[in-house]
Amino acid sequence: MLFLKDKRSTLDVAEHTVIIPSICVGNAAQLACDLLIASKELRRIGSITHPALIPVYGPSAYQHEPKEKVSSCELYEGVEDKLLVVQFRAPWVARHTGHFQKELVEILKGSRRVVILSGSFGFEKRVIEESPWAYRASDNFKEAHAAQLGNEELIKWKEHKGDAIYGGGNALQLFKAFDEQKVPVMLLFRYLLEGDNSTDASLIVRELNELCEDFLQLRNGGDGSFKLTVPKSWNLLFGNDVTELLF
């Protein structure tokens, strides 16, 4: 299931923060991980295969690694920041999802913390005036981030306590799988709509940066702003241009 580069036999995730996108509405979480990988220039260290993953193979998605290839599930690491990003390029096969989640948790359960990114249909937001953000955090994650999540004046996200996230893919099931193994885990999602969700992706990274600035370290200005690198794969985010031969 796990294939690592450089002849590595095991994946050491101790003290690592793991970011996992859920295949959600608008692919916003995957786009957010694209921005993280490109902006931090994370290095591809391996891939994961499983019957739950539809096979995908193609050219590099990032300009900082032009010779790499992409597959259904890739692992990208930032050694200095102890950051590991899991990126999916294909939807999951429903009947194999449970087993895949169990195997994924087994690989990553030794990490310091796990953050799952996702999205939900905008029309599921019942109160318009409320924040477009919601989260779910395990008890041990809340203890580790009490300063951020425990301060009602600073936290602008609404805690999600429901049994479903409509449009969120397998985010909630994956969250519960990590929580059962006592891994500090948080699920962060945004209410959004289908379409061009590149802006939503940058907003997700911005919110994540506010929570985890100590390892993302994206800030580069005195006003708190930061610069994101758009990956070259976004040049054809909606496919090729319409050929003039049609007209």
Rank of each mutant, 00 (worst) to 15 (best):
107 I>T: 13
46 G>M: 06
124 E>F: 06
17 T>M: 12
144 A>H: 03
47 S>D: 05
31 L>V: 08
198 S>M: 14
154 L>Q: 14
221 G>P: 00
188 L>E: 01
7 K>F: 12
179 D>W: 03
26 G>F: 09
191 Y>E: 04
66 P>G: 09
149 L>G: 04
31 L>T: 09
220 N>S: 15
76 Y>E: 06
146 A>F: 04
65 E>G: 00
146 A>G: 01
169 G>A: 05
166 Y>W: 00
38 A>Q: 15
68 E>K: 12
67 K>F: 10
244 E>N: 05
102 K>M: 03
86 V>M: 13
11 L>M: 11
129 E>T: 11
28 A>T: 15
185 V>E: 06
122 G>F: 02
85 V>Q: 02
120 S>R: 11
56 V>N: 01
69 K>Q: 04
113 R>T: 02
62 Y>G: 08
113 R>P: 04
16 H>Q: 08
33 C>F: 02
111 S>Y: 03
135 Y>P: 08
247 F>I: 02
187 L>G: 05
195 G>Y: 07
66 P>I: 08
61 A>H: 13
23 I>P: 00
66 P>T: 08
193 L>N: 11
18 V>N: 09
169 G>L: 01
122 G>N: 09
4 L>E: 07
82 K>M: 13
48 I>Y: 06
142 K>C: 08
116 I>F: 07
105 V>C: 14
27 N>I: 04
13 V>L: 12
16 H>G: 01
31 L>Q: 15
14 A>H: 10
178 F>M: 09
195 G>A: 08
234 W>L: 03
240 N>V: 02
164 A>K: 13
151 N>K: 11
49 T>K: 13
178 F>Q: 10
111 S>F: 05
226 F>D: 09
69 K>V: 09
158 K>T: 14
137 A>W: 06
50 H>F: 01
236 L>F: 14
137 A>K: 07
81 D>R: 14
130 E>A: 02
12 D>V: 14
6 D>M: 06
120 S>F: 05
62 Y>P: 12
137 A>M: 10
213 E>G: 14
204 I>M: 15
94 A>Q: 10
88 F>L: 15
129 E>S: 14
124 E>W: 01
9 S>T: 11
195 G>N: 07
23 I>H: 14
9 S>I: 06
27 N>Q: 10
187 L>M: 08
32 A>W: 12
18 V>L: 12
82 K>S: 15
124 E>K: 04
115 V>M: 13
75 L>K: 05
213 E>S: 15
83 L>Q: 03
189 F>W: 13
94 A>F: 10
85 V>A: 05
93 V>Y: 00
18 V>R: 04
